[in-house]
Design a protein around this nucleic acid. Structure first.
Length: 223
DNA sequence: TATACGATCACCT
DNA sequence: GGTGATCGTATAC
């Protein structure tokens, strides 16, 4: 369990996008206000505690990513230059860039490369690990549906984790949301590389092969 | 100030 | 295969 350092993110975006496969997105979930009662023995006296059931972890393994690189990339939000919205992408690597899409969903990116060069990796799909019950609740997920669809898309995984714009700019080397290495190694031959999803408007950049996913994984968004 | 549209998703046929 | 939901952002006026 090793939290990825700033150095990991401060590298070429295409490398980061591939190296993120098999890593774990982890978030401290404070959205649960249920009160739990605990009894512990302290100096032979029973002491009662009432605590909020917060600080649970919610996590999943990254199985699909996309790279968005620089102002030249017409699919990248930063192709329109430095604006209030894209400011985070121009900032220090290792921060979360979160934006709203279609008026109803959020997408999570991790900022890469050096400061003042706008680039990021979009997290497109996860294989849920911890906090699956909470994800089901957050997504209002039907029991009849297959779990493979719980976090198989950028909007879905944000909804499952409860990620919204309040986390925009969050430091991924901090203690609220981060990405960690749990020792899973994805071999080069098990990485599929394709064009990015939903960027047909991006002219000459529309077919750049900057999407990566784990071959055969059931939790990716589309095949 | 007004307008067009998107790094999506669920549900429909 | 197609469509509607819904609103922040960029751009035009």
């Amino acid at each position: 369990m090793k939290k990825l350092s700033r150095r990991f993110y401060a590298r070429p975006t295409l490398l980061v996008a591939q190296d993120l496969l098999g890593k774990f997105l982890v978030m401290v979930d404070c959205g649960n206000n249920k009160i739990l009662n605990y009894k512990i023995n302290c100096h032979n006296k029973a002491v009662k505690y009432r605590i909020k059931a917060c600080h649970r972890l919610i996590s999943g393994m990254i199985v699909e990513t996309e790279a968005y690189i620089g102002e030249e990339d017409l699919a990248c939000h930063a192709s329109r230059g430095r604006t209030r919205r894209t400011e985070v992408m121009f900032g220090e690597p290792g921060h979360a860039y979160i934006y709203m899409i279609y008026g109803m969903y959020y997408c999570l990116n991790v900022v890469t490369e050096k400061k003042d060069f706008p680039a990021a990796v979009l997290i497109r799909a996860l294989e849920p690990k911890e906090g699956i019950e909470k994800m089901i609740k957050n997504r209002k997920f039907k029991k009849s549906s297959t779990l493979f669809k719980l976090t198989s898309g950028p909007g879905k995984l944000c909804q499952a984790f409860g990620i919204d714009k309040s986390l925009n700019g969050a430091d991924l080397t901090g203690n609220k949301i981060w990405i960690e290495d749990r020792g899973i190694k994805i071999k080069k031959k098990d990485i599929v590389q394709t064009k990015r999803i939903g960027v047909d408007y991006a002219g000459k950049c529309r077919n750049y092969p900057w999407r990566f996913y784990i071959k055969g994984n059931k939790f990716v968004s589309v095949n």
